[in-house]
Simulated scan of single mutants.
Amino acid sequence: MSFEQCQNVTSLMAKFNKNWFIAGGWAIDLFMGKETREHKDIEIAIFRKDQLNLKAYLIEWEFKKVIKSEFHNWGNEFLELPIHEIHATNKLNGDKIEVLLNEAKDNDWEFRRDLRISLPLNSMWSYSDMGIPYLNPEIVLL
């Protein structure tokens, strides 16, 4: 039960002063408390409103936005729906993370594909025994 990739991201994000969460398959494994399979990548989720804060925080990283399954350089524009996926590469060591932008309105998380589907923000994430924040399975599997 090493969760080394998750611990590395937790160290990377330690001083980021906005909410962030492990997403994707790693989130499911954190929920289950064990690594169930090999993971080739790692995803984190942040709130859309915090995207430029993340870019400023990861100053040594190169960012690409994904539009219709194609990668494009991301300048400093604020990304709106339907764009929800960003790929970041550390220019110094080649580390990579995928960032998923999540919608929030008032005190609710909203599903980007159907904004009528929502969940109270305080029900959106949990923490692993190691203190790693992760999206709850109902969000990841939606």
Rank of each mutant, 00 (worst) to 15 (best):
G33Y: 03
F71P: 00
L52T: 05
E77D: 14
D108S: 13
E60V: 05
W74F: 07
R113M: 12
K40M: 06
E70I: 04
D95V: 03
E35V: 12
N90Q: 09
A88V: 07
L101Y: 00
P82H: 05
L52D: 07
L30G: 00
K55F: 03
K40P: 03
E85G: 02
E70P: 00
F47V: 04
G75N: 14
K68F: 09
W74I: 06
L79S: 04
I44L: 03
I86E: 03
L81C: 07
D95P: 01
H72I: 03
W26K: 03
Q51Y: 06
E43H: 09
I97R: 03
E77G: 04
K96F: 11
I86D: 01
K49F: 04
E62M: 10
H39C: 11
D41C: 12
K64I: 08
H87F: 09
K40S: 12
K64H: 12
I59V: 14
F111N: 08
N93C: 12
E35W: 00
I83W: 01
I86Q: 01
D41S: 14
A56I: 09
N76S: 13
G24A: 10
Q51S: 08
L79V: 03
D29M: 07
S69F: 09
I83Y: 01
E60G: 08
F78L: 08
N93V: 06
H39R: 06
K105F: 06
K40F: 09
N53H: 10
L54H: 00
E98P: 00
T36F: 06
T36Q: 13
F71D: 11
N90C: 15
G25M: 12
L115F: 05
N107D: 15
T36N: 15
A88L: 10
